[in-house]
């Protein structure tokens, strides 16, 4: 498995930011087996980086490696969608399943 390069943009130490950081850590530990590099960037401290990366919404997770580039916004609480966004599909849903979980 190739190594993941992830950047998480947050705005200040809000509960939303904390949630996103924790969710991401959990997903990475469980699914990537430590094969990742993760950077957390607070746009309040580094507004120039937000400009360069065109960060409008926070939290924003950017998967730089492996390609393709992916952007995921939100506090990453929907694990299934995060994995989809990272191009990781650890399990396949039964196709006939409909409605809520």
């Amino acid at each position: 498995m190739s190594k993941f390069a992830l950047k998480l943009y947050i705005t200040g130490k809000t509960s939303k930011s904390e949630r996103a950081i924790n969710n991401l850590k959990n997903i990475c530990d469980e699914e990537l087996g430590g094969q990742y590099e993760m950077k957390v960037i607070d746009v309040l401290e580094r507004p120039q980086l937000a400009e360069d990366e065109k960060i409008l919404a926070t939290p924003t997770l950017i998967k730089e490696l492996p390609p393709p580039l992916r952007r995921i916004i939100g506090d990453l609480s929907d694990k299934e969608k995060v994995l989809l966004g990272l191009d990781l599909q650890p399990y396949i849903k039964p196709p006939q399943k409909k409605g809520g979980e």
Binding site: T11, A50, I55, T60, R71, S77
Partner: peptide
Amino acid sequence: LEKTGDYDLSGLLTQ
């Protein structure tokens, strides 16, 4: 863009 929960436009506001 993939949406995975709560977010806001603080990034834009900060910029």
